[in-house]
Amino acid sequence: MPQKMERSKLLELENIKQQYKVGFGFRNKKTAVCLSDISFDIEEGQTLGLVGESGSGKTTTTRVVLGIEAPTSGDVRYKGKSLSEYGRKDWKQFRQEVQAVFQNPLDSFDPRFKVRKILEEPLSINNIGSPTERREKAESLLEMVGLSAEFADRYPHEFSGGQLQRIAIARALALGPKLLVLDEPVSALDVSVRGQILNLLHDLQVEKKISYLYISHDIASVRYLCDKIAIIYFGQIVEYGSTEQIFEKPIHPYTKELLKAGVVTELSDNVESVVHEVPSVTDPPPGCPFADRCPVCTGACRAKNPTEYKEVEKGHFSTCIHYTI
């Protein structure tokens, strides 16, 4: 996506494509295209929201951003340097500066570690501080996320979901990161706790100027936290713009559907029974992948998948062909 900005870019993704080989035997081998041509960038101190339903490629994108997987093609650049050119030292630096918080906090902790050890581990791995300093650091981290220091001697299973998510955030902050990748950090939490975590994330960003890549299927929380939003559908960014632009003037029918789903309070009486499934990744349709669900779909939509971005207004892009400027 063409983007010219004055602020320095922390992370850039350029035409990322990610494919997997699936199936057994040499006859049944298929290629699953999970990401086709993903590009976006995150500026310093900014939050980008990546919104889409399950199976749309959100998590694959995080894996590529975190360097857990190398993309099939395309380029991920962190501070201007491509991850594919990284050496051992670069990776060490990168992994200190880019941290992640995942959806299910209980799964991301070792159940036999006390909270203290969980928080001290990133420090001891990187040989930071003396044991006493680490101990103090762990306690101050707990206080930073609004938990009392006495929690340090408990085990993960003793905490509620919201508290665990706070600990996960504390661990991610231990090394003073520049970028936090938040993969559905609040979707496993209750509404009342969800607000607490979102407020905490907001405050931390203001205080520490960390950039966030916030991934979610919950459009409401995205509105609160993000400066820019990318809507992803079937491995493709279908709309991109600032939070205001997306919420005030949604262009793509999928974005509209997402926004609607967030505020509907009544069910219509005429009950539809058709399941709208995302098309198969191993056998994608030739046209727009959203065509089957789209209210404004025409023959042209089914003939060719629109991949070109149209600039609707400054900094607001969409792939939908039904929008003419």
């Binding site: 299927h217 459009i219 997402l258």
Partner: peptide, 10 residues
């Protein structure tokens, strides 16, 4: 997901 949730409620 939000959209699927709505379908399921229906």
């Amino acid at each position: 997901d939000a959209t699927v949730q709505l379908q399921y409620m229906q």
